[in-house]
């Protein structure tokens, strides 16, 4: 992949990164004496422009405005349409999930469609109902059909909608990343899929899901083949310790050990997320290229998660130390 065409957008991203929420800002937010004070810290960051007319309680609107801006910026300036799709396709799958729930479970949540998508949700809907669409690409259409088939084969059980959509999303993301031909990005998708797989593995074990049910949840393209995972599943929790070696990270192994002792899945999940972010952060040592854009987007994403966690914690007057334990790395 030609990184020269990413020169301009990389430098745009660098300029923006200097204004992003950093460690100090997060510390300051967490330690702020009140909700309003935590909110004011955002004035020092790239959210400042979107805060001016908002009350602290409306911080979500500021986040949303900021995300819309990010979307417009990336849509306009990313030189590869595929990279843009890779970043935002997740939101299309969220919409697809809503639509599937509407179609098979009769839950109507059209009001809560995600914006900032690759395809208009109406288009997805019209493809689902009439096989007619103006914008969807072939792969996405195929995935819709496949997901619908899977849902119907399982007689529309609610959980299968989530499972099938997630699987389809990972498949599509992996394929786009593969097409992009950038190893850094491809590996990061792989880590994301693997993280989700490990968590699904633990959950399934905890709920003593039968092996054939568990198999339905597995995506290809994680670090491990479905066969390996199934064998590991047979041998229970011991199975997971073996294949975690693929992470090459002592933190992850340590975290797994802790999980096996205290069974705190939330913390284990957080540590896996942190591993993903620490991988993403390696893009800082690279020069211009698609990795810069990709990692900027992921970091923006984890900043939003942190802000939500902090603000929610502050609103409910949760102790600072307690909030800190929930936060993601940045």
């Amino acid at each position: 992949m030609n990184s020269d065409k990413y020169i301009t957008i990389s430098s745009l991203v660098w300029s923006r990164e200097s204004k992003m929420l950093d460690h100090t800002d997060i510390e300051r937010m967490v330690d702020a004496p009140s909700f309003d004070d935590a909110y004011r810290v955002l004035n020092d960051t790239d959210y400042a422009d979107n805060l001016l007319d908002l009350e602290p309680a409306q911080y979500r609107d500021a986040m949303r405005k900021d995300f819309t801006e990010l979307y417009e910026f990336l849509k306009r300036d990313i030189p590869d349409y595929d990279l843009f799709r890779l970043l935002f396709i997740e939101r299309d799958f969220l919409n697809l999930r809503l639509l599937l729930k509407e179609k098979y479970l009769g839950v109507k949540e059209v009001e809560s469609f995600e914006g900032e998508t690759v395809y208009p949700p109406e288009d997805i809907k019209s493809y689902m109902n009439e096989r007619k669409s103006m914008f969807l690409d072939e792969k996405f259409k195929d995935l819709i059909v496949a997901v619908e088939k899977e849902v119907e084969a399982n007689s529309g059980a609610p959980w299968i909608v989530d499972v099938a959509v997630t699987k389809a999303m990972y498949q599509m993301q992996y394929e786009i990343a593969d097409n992009l031909g950038n190893e850094f990005i491809k590996r990061s998708i792989q880590i994301k899929i693997s993280n989700a797989t490990v968590i699904a593995f633990m959950r399934a074990l905890r709920f003593e899901l039968p092996a054939n049910e568990f198999k339905k949840m597995l995506s290809d393209n994680s670090f491990w083949s479905v066969g390996e995972l199934m064998t590991a599943y047979e041998s229970g929790e011991d199975g997971v310790t073996n294949f975690l070696a693929s992470y090459e990270s002592n933190e992850v192994k340590e975290s797994l050990r802790e999980y096996l002792e205290n069974k705190n899945l939330f913390e284990f999940e957080r540590d896996l997320d942190n591993y993903f972010i620490s991988y993403i952060n390696q893009a800082r040592y690279l020069s211009y290229g698609p990795e810069q854009v990709y990692s900027y987007f992921q970091r923006k994403h984890s900043a939003v998660i942190n802000i939500r966690l902090i603000m929610a914690g502050k609103m409910n007057e949760i102790d600072s130390g307690e909030i800190k334990r929930t936060l993601r790395a940045i």
Binding site: T8, I9, L12, S15
Partner: peptide
């Protein structure tokens, strides 16, 4: 031209 493209990015933000 490579430096200029990168520069354009910086300038448009700053």
């Amino acid at each position: 031209s490579a430096a200029g493209q990168a520069g354009a990015g910086v300038i448009s933000e700053d």
